[in-house]
Design a protein around this nucleic acid. Sequence first.
DNA 1: CTGTTAGCGCCTTCAT
DNA 2: ATGAAGGCGCTAACAG
Lengths: 337, 337
Amino acid sequence: MAEKITIYDIAKELNITAATVSRALNNNPKISPTTRKLVIDTAAKMNYKQNKLAQALRSGKSNNVGVIVPRIDSNFFASVIRGIEEELHPEGYHVIICQTHEDETREIENINTLVNAQIDGILMSISNVTKENEILIKRVQNKKIPIVFFDRKLNIDGVSSVTIDDFLGGYIATQHLIEEGCTKIAHLSGDQSLEIYENRFKGYKQALLDNRIDFNEEFVIRTKSSVNEGINAAKTLLKLKTPPDAIFSSSDFAALGAIQELRDNNVIVPNNFCVIGFGDEPFTKFMELSISTINQSPLDMGRVAAKVFLEQIRNNLETERKVILTPKLITRKSSTR
Amino acid sequence: MAEKITIYDIAKELNITAATVSRALNNNPKISPTTRKLVIDTAAKMNYKQNKLAQALRSGKSNNVGVIVPRIDSNFFASVIRGIEEELHPEGYHVIICQTHEDETREIENINTLVNAQIDGILMSISNVTKENEILIKRVQNKKIPIVFFDRKLNIDGVSSVTIDDFLGGYIATQHLIEEGCTKIAHLSGDQSLEIYENRFKGYKQALLDNRIDFNEEFVIRTKSSVNEGINAAKTLLKLKTPPDAIFSSSDFAALGAIQELRDNNVIVPNNFCVIGFGDEPFTKFMELSISTINQSPLDMGRVAAKVFLEQIRNNLETERKVILTPKLITRKSSTR
DNA sequence: CTGTTAGCGCCTTCAT
DNA sequence: ATGAAGGCGCTAACAG
């Protein structure tokens, strides 16, 4: 009862050949309706299940795609993956998850093992911008394996990507703070070798410029995306001789930390100090002092990335697509007076 | 340059046979060191990559495991998956993600497609308790495919599981509220056909009993795990002629909703009303009025589930394991006076 | 130590 | 409309 049933078993049962069984099962037009029905029925009766592995080896298509992210337990990446899975599942693809933990070696290793596993495509958010992984990715591209970047990308000709307009995100966040009356706006930035952080920073600067506000180098602090680093950044900022009156943080977590530190120093948010984050993490909405932020629609990002992948597969990678989604300003209490 | 290199190409290059190449590459002892080095070197030179698909078909081992969860974009499941991935990756396994969205049909379909894809095991959190999926799971079990349940399980002989002690979780949460001086404790429960919710409820009742507090049917409200349902539940509770003075919620989200509604009705938390949730979702810690909760150590749960799977594989499923992790009480502001 | 053979399960020419 | 044969890439059994 636990035996593996193959098309040969069905063939033997019906005194026909495996090829016929295969054809019947695959809706091949040149097969008699009688035989087809017979085959399908006995296949069901014998509880036959197609071995996808054999089919994959034969066809060169595994129906698996690899998704590489820094880590999966962040709401952003989990949501993107959800979008990818939901879009790809109906098309018969499985989603294989890999994490890099921002580690360059792991990133390279993940790409290699996915390729060896004969995945049909890679959707990834880059962790490290290095020559080495760029070379590797180009090599994968040469093997005609579609690659789609989402969020954090590398600029490579012919490689598609789905991102949001981070420049615009930085711009509207800053513009919003200015409209709320803030003039001394600090910026908590991430690693600017990653485009997303560079662009948010540029958007920030442009908004200042457009409003004739001087850019102040002291107001820009490099932080990781964590509550603690936000706390430290706020400490630094408060020590300045002319401290800022607002923060645009590239990370919701850092924004939260900053708010905590501000409050600990009796700075009243938002009355005396406005804060806006980036990412629309769930907690920003839940706080009593809800945190303004920029929404990146991760679910859509995943869906679109998946669609781009499907398009690539269907058009033989002829079309390179650089999709740019529009960030949405979410104004909440932390920046509204 | 983008050609697929196989062991035959290497064999031809060296005027030996593919079998020898295979042996050399697989560290087969009976091969001369000279040949081995030669093979390995030219393999590297030719940029040979093993085709895992062929190996999988040949060996009957795909080195893929399927993970089925209701959805991936919840911190709990994402963390479990992270744990699974981290434990299994070094062992050469890939993790395939499937979501059910609590839909019974999808759950069954996911199991089937994973089996067809020749995965080496299934780790899952059950979405629906039905005869149908129990039968299917037993059938998978008969095929000698290891199954490991985590968190939400089915009780099936020979199928391993990793859960937390939900009874204890419900008990210590309730006990804590009692120790804070609460006597009229309500309970927001999930779907009690799922063991986890049934057991949390039982733990709640036992704690009441042990403290000689009468159980009040009116105080138990069935909610889904959402902020809105928490709000509605609180509304209902506040309308009672003798409303409760505390809530033990099986869900952090419902707990949050309840707190919001309480505050909207000028009930002061925690002074006049204590609330404790379940799950230790990130936001519970971040709130200004941080929410007490029960931690389920999802990362460990994932790791242990993965270890149990590996054990099953290695021992030919001979050992059935029912691992029960200990929940941790996290007391925060919402329940501490 | 290495070559020969065969087969994992499937599908797709090429014949008939 | 169906059968025969071969191969996707790999490895294990059997020889020698």
